[in-house]
């Protein structure tokens, strides 16, 4: 069943007709040609499709497009609006925080969302004292980034990139 929705993607407004079954990920990739978010598993098990919905990191593969009419979506491409790389993306290049690059846009979006969460004082599974202030050490970064699988095994460099930006 088709329905018309509006999406604000990386600063551009798009009005498009989608099947109610179309996921946000497929709407971006197949309908709008925004292929920065990747499809690694399509079942919420890898994090490659991570985008920012508003300011929050979410998985576009498990979001129905129709349920996000009017939403503001930022992909890794949209984090570099004026051609200047986002500091996190810059750090990923500097630290070689990727190899094949397929999980990378999701890692970048996830890291940006995660840093905002830490900034807001959100705890994680790695947080010893849930009532204390959050300190983003390596264990915290690893835990908070565990929703983004990287089969190339770039994790140590991803952590290094995030560590640099978080300081």
């Amino acid at each position: 069943m088709d329905t018309t929705i509006t999406l604000h993607v990386d600063g551009a407004e798009h009005t498009l007709t989608v099947d109610t079954r179309t996921t946000l990920l497929d709407a971006l990739r197949d309908r709008l040609g925004v292929t920065s978010p990747k499809k690694g598993c399509d079942h919420g098990q890898c994090g490659s499709c991570t985008v920012l919905l508003g300011d929050r990191r979410i998985l576009a593969c498990l979001a129905l497009a129709v349920a996000h009419d009017g939403a503001r979506v930022t992909t890794a491409a949209g984090l570099a609006p004026d051609g200047e790389l986002h500091p996190l993306a810059r750090a990923m290049v500097d630290h070689d925080g990727f190899q094949c690059g397929y999980c990378t846009p999701g890692q970048v979006c996830s890291a940006v969302g995660m840093l905002a969460e830490a900034e807001a004082g959100w705890p994680s599974h790695a947080t010893r004292d849930l009532t204390a202030a959050t300190e983003l050490d390596d264990a915290e970064i690893r835990e908070r980034m565990s929703g983004n699988l990287c089969r190339c095994g770039a994790y140590p460099n991803i952590v290094a990139a995030i560590r640099e930006v978080s300081r």
């Binding site: 292929t35 920065s36 978010p37 990747k38 992909t75 890794a76 491409a77 984090l79 570099a80 790389l85 993306a89 810059r90 990923m92 290049v93 990727f98 690059g101 397929y102 990378t104 846009p105 970048v108």
Partner: peptide, 11 residues
């Protein structure tokens, strides 16, 4: 690198 961290390298 730039193309990969922005997701614009075409697979």
């Amino acid at each position: 690198g730039r193309a990969k961290v922005t997701g614009t390298a075409p697979y």
